[in-house]
């Protein structure tokens, strides 16, 4: 079975990572920022699995599964924070979070 070589995966993962990173940096809604972080983590997962296949070692897949669990943990905490803020009727916009200032 001839499929795309590793370069294709690396480029795809890199693009995905960049999109996610841009999302984190440019978006102001914390929910979308969290989603963008998920994209970043997923891009790393794609890379790990592709390399795992390239090297014929399964530890990359193991790594990827751990990352999924970690990503889920981050989401739990992140959503918990967002809900807590939502309850206090804080506008969900990171640029408008200006309680903390010098």
């Amino acid at each position: 079975m001839h499929g795309p070589d590793i370069q294709w995966y690396v480029i795809l993962a890199g693009l995905l990572f960049s999109i996610g990173a841009l999302g984190v940096m440019l978006r102001r809604n914390p929910l979308i920022i969290l989603l963008s972080v998920e994209i970043m983590l997923n891009s790393a997962n794609l890379l790990l699995i592709a390399f795992s296949r390239l090297h014929g070692r399964e530890d990359g897949q193991i790594f990827a599964i751990s990352v999924m669990a970690v990503a889920a943990s981050e989401v739990v905490v992140g959503l918990g924070l967002i809900v807590a803020m939502g309850r206090r009727h804080v506008e969900l916009d990171v640029d408008k979070l200006r309680t903390l200032r010098g």
């Binding site: 070589d5 590793i6 690396v10 480029i11 993962a13 990572f17 960049s18 592709a50 390239l54």
Partner: peptide, 17 residues
């Protein structure tokens, strides 16, 4: 970023085949 990705990606050696 895309440029970096492509440059890095092209350096990745090996075949999955």
């Amino acid at each position: 970023l895309a440029e970096v990705c492509v440059v890095v990606g092209m350096q990745a050696g090996g075949f999955l085949t």
